[in-house]
Amino acid sequence: MDTLKVSILTIFILFFSCNENKPSIEKQWYKGNLHTHSYWSDGDEFPEVIMDWYKSNGYQFVALTDHNILAEGEKWKTISKDSIYQNAFKNYLKTYGSDWVTYKVDSLNRTQVKLKTYEEYRPKFEENGKFLIIQSEEITDAYNGKPIHINATNVKRKIDPQGGNSVLEVMQNNLDEFAKHKKEFGTPIIAHINHPNFGYAIGLEDMIALKNEQFFEVYNGHPAVNNSGNDEYIATELMWDYINIAYLENNKPIMYGLATDDSHHYHRKGSKWSNAGRGWIMVQADTLSAKSLISAMETGQFYASTGVTLNDLTFENNTLSVAVKTDENTTYKIDFIGCKKGQGEPEVFASFGSDKASFELSNDMLYVRCKITSSKLHQNPIEDLLFEKAWTQPYIFTE
Rank of each mutant, 00 (worst) to 15 (best):
D2C: 11
L4D: 08
K5H: 12
V6I: 13
T10L: 15
F12N: 09
I13G: 05
F15N: 05
C18I: 15
Q28Y: 11
W29I: 13
N33Y: 02
Y39Q: 01
D42L: 07
G43R: 01
D44N: 15
F46C: 03
P47V: 09
W53V: 01
K55R: 14
V62A: 00
A63L: 04
A63S: 15
D66M: 00
A71H: 12
A71M: 14
A71E: 13
K75C: 04
K75N: 06
K77I: 06
K77G: 05
S80Y: 08
D82E: 10
Q86F: 06
N87R: 13
N87M: 11
A88V: 02
K90A: 14
T95I: 10
S98E: 15
R110W: 07
V113L: 00
L115C: 01
K116R: 14
T117H: 01
E120M: 09
P123N: 05
G129N: 14
I133H: 01
I134E: 00
I139R: 00
A142Y: 13
I148Y: 09
H149P: 02
I150Q: 08
N154V: 08
K156D: 01
P161N: 05
N165G: 15
S166C: 12
V167D: 07
L168T: 07
M171G: 05
M171L: 15
Q172D: 10
L175C: 03
D176Q: 03
D176F: 02
D176M: 00
F178D: 00
E184V: 07
F185Q: 04
I189W: 05
I190K: 03
I190T: 00
G199S: 10
Y200V: 02
I202H: 08
L210S: 06
E213H: 14
Q214V: 07
F215V: 06
F216C: 06
V218L: 11
H222L: 04
S228Y: 06
Y233H: 15
A235R: 10
E237C: 02
L238G: 01
M239D: 01
D241L: 02
Y242D: 04
I245L: 10
Y247I: 07
L248H: 06
N251M: 11
P253I: 00
I254A: 06
A259C: 13
S263E: 03
W273H: 13
W273A: 03
S274A: 15
N275Y: 07
R278D: 04
I281Q: 02
A285H: 08
S289M: 11
A290D: 04
K291S: 13
S292L: 03
L293M: 08
A296N: 05
F302W: 00
Y303W: 11
S305A: 10
N311W: 09
L320S: 04
S321M: 08
V322W: 04
T330L: 02
T330M: 06
T331V: 12
F336M: 02
K340T: 12
K341R: 12
G342K: 00
G342Y: 08
G344V: 00
G344P: 07
F349C: 07
G353E: 14
G353Q: 15
L366I: 05
Y367A: 00
Y367D: 03
V368G: 08
T373G: 06
L377A: 13
L377E: 14
Q379A: 14
I382H: 02
W391H: 06
W391T: 05
Q393T: 09
E399I: 10
